[in-house]
Computed example of a mutant assay.
Amino acid sequence: MKTPSRNSFVTTIGLAATASLLTLFLFASPVTRGADPNNQATKQHYEIRTYLLGEDGDAAAVDHYLQHALIPALNRIEIGPVGVFAPAANDTNDRDSIIVVIPADSADQLASLQTRLQNDAQYLADAKPYLERGPQDAPYARISSEMLVAMDCMPKLNVPAGTLDNDDRVYELRLYESANERLGNLKVDMFNNGEVPIFLDSGIAPVFIGQAVVGPQTPNLTYLTVYPNDDARLKAWDAFRAHPDWQVLKNVAKYKGTVSKIDKHVLVAKPYSQM
């Protein structure tokens, strides 16, 4: 592929190539096959739940609850796969946390979770040691959550084949804040119209991509990617930054300034994670 020059003809060709890659992605990927990007009913919703452990948190208690109570209960109502992650050793964030990704078919399904859990006798029994802890023995400081709706470029979550067999795999969770809703929607447009195929061509494998509906950092979009190991992660992002199609796309005038802040988390999966 030729590196795009400054003249408008080559720029147009570069954008056309990017659009072609996106078309291939939409029709070849098992995540999007058969999905109508204009039909909201085909798009999943995600809760990204972060247990902020704090100084006195009990990670083992949260892990036990998630593994033996919450995830089995979610799976019983056909919610899954559920991902559970912790910061990697080289993550630059200074807060101890456990991050949980809960996919759902709709926002209503996420909104009804607490009611359904309270009516699940098996869940209540399995969660009893966790739920009975009091203020002086709380296993975490707070829970922070955001809800996302999947985007046209990836309407359903996908865990690449063989992912769970690789103990060296690492993940990146990235949150792109925008200064206002207009710019946030333009960043979504940028993903939907070219950025994801460049990811794939560079070795960046998305697990989910979503726009925030509610959360503490809206407007934003959030996505999770997975790599065979950390070296592969670093090489993939180097390839992305150097990709000729990215050189074109990032210079499209309407996409300038669409991201005001990036939160990046390098993560490893918990042994019981389903992602």
Rank of each mutant, 00 (worst) to 15 (best):
D58R: 11
I99Q: 09
E146W: 00
R49H: 08
A61T: 09
K187R: 03
Q118K: 06
I79F: 11
H243S: 04
L117Q: 01
D137F: 11
D263Q: 14
L21K: 06
R142Y: 05
N93V: 10
A239C: 02
V62N: 01
D238V: 05
K43D: 05
N90I: 09
M154T: 09
I209Q: 07
I102G: 04
Y130M: 11
F85R: 04
D120L: 02
I77P: 06
L117M: 02
D96S: 12
L221S: 05
N39V: 00
A121W: 01
V100E: 09
A41R: 13
I102Y: 09
A242P: 15
T163L: 14
L183S: 12
P87W: 10
D167N: 15
I71N: 01
D63E: 13
V259N: 02
G194Q: 01
D230E: 13
P135D: 08
R241G: 10
L52Q: 15
D126W: 06
F27K: 15
N158A: 14
T23S: 03
L113V: 06
A28M: 05
G34R: 15
R133I: 05
R133M: 09
G57T: 12
E146N: 03
T18P: 03
A19P: 06
I77G: 07
D263W: 13
L70M: 10
L267G: 04
R133D: 04
I262W: 11
T3W: 14
N185L: 06
N229C: 08
V188N: 00
Q109H: 12
E195L: 06
T23G: 06
V213C: 00
S112K: 14
K250R: 15
C153R: 08
A59T: 03
D165L: 03
M147K: 10
D167L: 14
H68S: 11
V213G: 01
K270D: 07
V259H: 02
D126S: 10
L21Y: 03
L26D: 15
R133P: 08
Y51D: 08
G210V: 00
G184K: 00
G215S: 04
G57M: 13
D58G: 01
R95D: 03
A19S: 11
N180Y: 01
K256N: 12
V31E: 15
T50S: 15
R174H: 01
A69D: 12
A161I: 05
I262F: 05
Q114L: 04
L117F: 03
G215W: 07
A107S: 10
R241V: 11
A121C: 02
N7Y: 08
C153P: 05
K43V: 03
D63R: 15
R174Q: 08
D152T: 11
L22R: 10
K43R: 14
